[in-house]
């Protein structure tokens, strides 16, 4: 616990002390990138400055309300949730963008997720995983995700010719109307004001009703604690100004993370530049994980 605090402070100071980020998201820049991406590129060149700056910008933005609050000496409302160093959930709204055409199926996200969140290494428990879709000439879709793609994929030959193929990272969709929260009998699953759906390990009775209610298979029962588990958008990271582990390690920036309601946010740009789809739209869960270049076979 102690160690944790030290490192967290270190990381926070880092984000705060670095010099002011230059404004990076101007529309002209975006447009030029758009044309590039039409050529089915993995976006590796999209600008290294952007990566660093975006990370800084989002972390800096995130810390501002907290700092202002401290300066004005408002009367603290005991029922207003303030976490760590002044992170106020009500000032944020998180979303993730996934560009399917950029994903190379390396599975680094699934691997990092297990390390960051102490997810059991057995191949039955995943907070995030990557699926491979191979659509054959006869229209059939062959889908697989061996060990959640942590060891990437093997090229096994199929009988039919593939007409299109791609990888789809999956995770909890942090629904606006989460069915899992709706059905939890005791209030152990809940949605914080910033839109992230969390599970209270100590309060969960392990009834598995939320696992049944999740349309995305994003939850599992932890074999040791026997309580429900799921992706938290790496909540312990985002409250400190870091991005989720899967986003941090994605080598092709197929995963984008940011604020949904702030203009200078990578997710807003992502929504502007791409045609966006969500999973199982008809269920009206209103996911906050958005997919660019989503294929009809994905579900």
């Amino acid at each position: 616990m102690m160690n944790n605090k030290i490192i967290n402070n270190k990381i926070n100071n880092k984000s705060l002390n670095t010099e002011k980020p230059e404004p990076i998201i101007d529309s002209a820049g975006c447009d030029s990138v758009r044309y590039d991406s039409e050529h089915n590129d993995a976006g590796c060149d999209a600008g290294r400055r952007n990566f660093v700056n975006c990370a800084l910008a989002s972390s800096a933005l995130m810390m501002v309300p907290g700092m202002l609050g401290a300066g004005e000496e408002e009367k603290p409302d005991p029922n207003e949730l303030v976490l760590g160093d002044g992170y106020r959930p009500k000032d944020h709204k998180w979303g993730m963008g996934i560009d399917i055409s950029k994903c190379i199926g390396c599975g680094r996200c699934a691997d990092a997720c297990k390390s960051e969140n102490d997810v059991p290494r057995e191949p039955f428990y995943f907070r995030t995983w990557v699926e491979r879709y191979r659509i054959l000439e006869n229209g059939e879709a062959v889908v697989d995700s061996p060990n959640g793609a942590i060891d990437s994929f093997d090229e096994d030959k199929l009988d039919e010719r593939i007409i299109r193929s791609f990888f789809v990272p999956k995770l909890c969709n942090q629904c606006e109307h989460p069915p899992c929260v709706q059905v939890c009998p005791v209030g152990a699953s809940y949605r914080v004001e910033d839109g992230v759906v969390l599970v209270d390990r100590d309060y969960c009775v392990g009834c598995s009703y939320c696992l049944q209610a999740c349309p995305y298979g994003a939850r599992f029962l932890h074999p040791e604690t026997r309580t429900a588990e799921k992706c938290t958008f790496c909540y312990h990271r985002i409250v400190k100004g870091l991005v989720p582990a899967c986003v941090e390690v994605c080598p092709t920036q197929a995963r984008i993370f940011g604020e949904m309601e702030k203009k200078s946010s990578p997710i807003i740009r992502f929504m502007r530049m791409n045609n966006i789809g969500v999973l199982k739209h008809s269920l009206n869960t209103e996911p906050k994980v958005f997919y660019a270049n989503l294929d009809k076979e994905v579900r």
């Binding site: 039955f124 995943f126 697989d144 999956k170 696992l211 049944q212 298979g217 029962l221």
Partner: peptide, 12 residues
């Protein structure tokens, strides 16, 4: 066929 990786075990 394909099932989500978390779906192997029946929970009820």
């Amino acid at each position: 066929g394909y099932i989500y990786p978390n779906e192997i075990e029946l929970h009820w």
